[in-house]
Amino acid sequence: MQTSETKVTGQKRTIVAAVMILFCIPLTIAIGILFLNDRSYYPISLMIILFATLPFAMVFESRKPQARELVIIAVLVAIAVAGRTAFFMVPQVKPVIAIVIIAGVSLGAESGFIVGALTGFVSNFIFGQGPWTPWQMFAFGIIGFLAGLLFSKGILSGKTLPLSIFGGLAAFMIYGLLLDTAAVMMFTSTWTKASILSTYMLGVPFNLIHGASTILFLLILSRPMTEKLTRIKKKYGLVEERNDS
């Protein structure tokens, strides 16, 4: 029963995503080329990021999630936000990706995305919203989604070491690359190899710290956190709860 339901939500998301990818994103690019003389990379990239986030939000809303699921997600978001504020003086040391990956693995890809995206959004009520918010939301979200997806397909094991390695790579490659791209889009007018490369090179030390800290957080947190989430799921039958809806 659960598999059939996830299939349905998966299909819905595929349809919404297809509309976005085949219609909205090309339309945005076309408008950009026609009206903005093809020089406004930043607004166009911002719109694309928003369109990429929308399908997840729409599917989640249309599923009408139960109260228990909502509150568990809110708890994980709050823990990640509190973790980010606890380390605010140390640049790039944040446990957000670690918690998002744990959420994706224990609650599923869908919830992983929601935990990630909302952590980006909510923590910026404390750190300040800005043009970087949509990028952070999408980067955190897609990492949670990938973690959940790879875990459910059996590619990623739930053990501490593989999770930590995945977390380090995700922080360095996915989060780092996406936010450095956002910086390139915002600061430069043309996409030259030199400007892109130099921005990525400038980002490397920061992304290395972020990756290493994520590995460390996952080494410490992944086992106890997963155990606690599994326990709560078993004790209160959260999986069944989702089925009867």
Binding site: E61, K64, V71, I73, I114, L118, I126
Partner: peptide, 20 residues
């Protein structure tokens, strides 16, 4: 527009000071 997501946001915002 997004009732479930808004509820999560509002709960998470409340939880942070509560956890502290």
């Amino acid at each position: 527009i997004i009732p479930a997501l808004s509820l999560i946001i509002s709960m998470a915002l409340r939880f942070v000071p509560r956890y502290k």
